[in-house]
């Protein structure tokens, strides 16, 4: 009997993006007492920054928010205006690398407004 030689098995792996800085910080509430900016800085070990996709939305309401790209594609930001409809909703961002890997961050929104 001869030997059967299997070719080496090559597994392609993909590293998910990482959010390394944000405002508000992870775990904090977003206090919306005036128009404000929320942002994330993200990186990816095996994908260039300009290939990362950012999706911001308000959970529950299902509203997609328009966002801006930070210089050198280092991250993404959104500007939120004071809107009582956002009270007790959740702002969420997903950073995806186009290879089925992504990372998310979310913040509960607390609106502070006179007369609310």
């Amino acid at each position: 009997m001869g030997c059967f030689h299997w070719p080496p098995l090559i597994l392609e792996t993909n590293v998910a993006p990482e959010i390394y800085a944000s405002n508000p910080s992870a775990g904090e509430d977003l206090i919306l007492d005036r128009p404000t900016v929320a942002f994330v800085f993200a990186s990816d070990e095996d994908d260039p920054p300009e290939t990362l996709d950012y999706l911001w939305w308000v959970e529950g309401a299902g509203t997609i928010l328009s966002h801006d790209i930070l210089p050198d594609s280092a991250g993404s930001s959104v500007t939120l205006t004071v809107d009582t409809a956002l009270h007790d909703q959740t702002l969420r961002v997903r950073v995806a690398d186009g290879k089925n890997d992504s990372v998310e961050l979310s913040w509960p929104i607390q609106v502070v407004q006179e007369g609310l």
């Binding site: 328009s66 966002h67 790209i69």
Partner: peptide, 20 residues
């Protein structure tokens, strides 16, 4: 290369459309 383009609606809801 790597220029972030942000096109914002003038008026309406001021939505921003982006690419690089």
């Amino acid at each position: 290369q790597g220029v972030a383009i942000a096109a914002q609606e003038r008026g309406f809801d001021e939505g921003i459309y982006t690419t690089v």
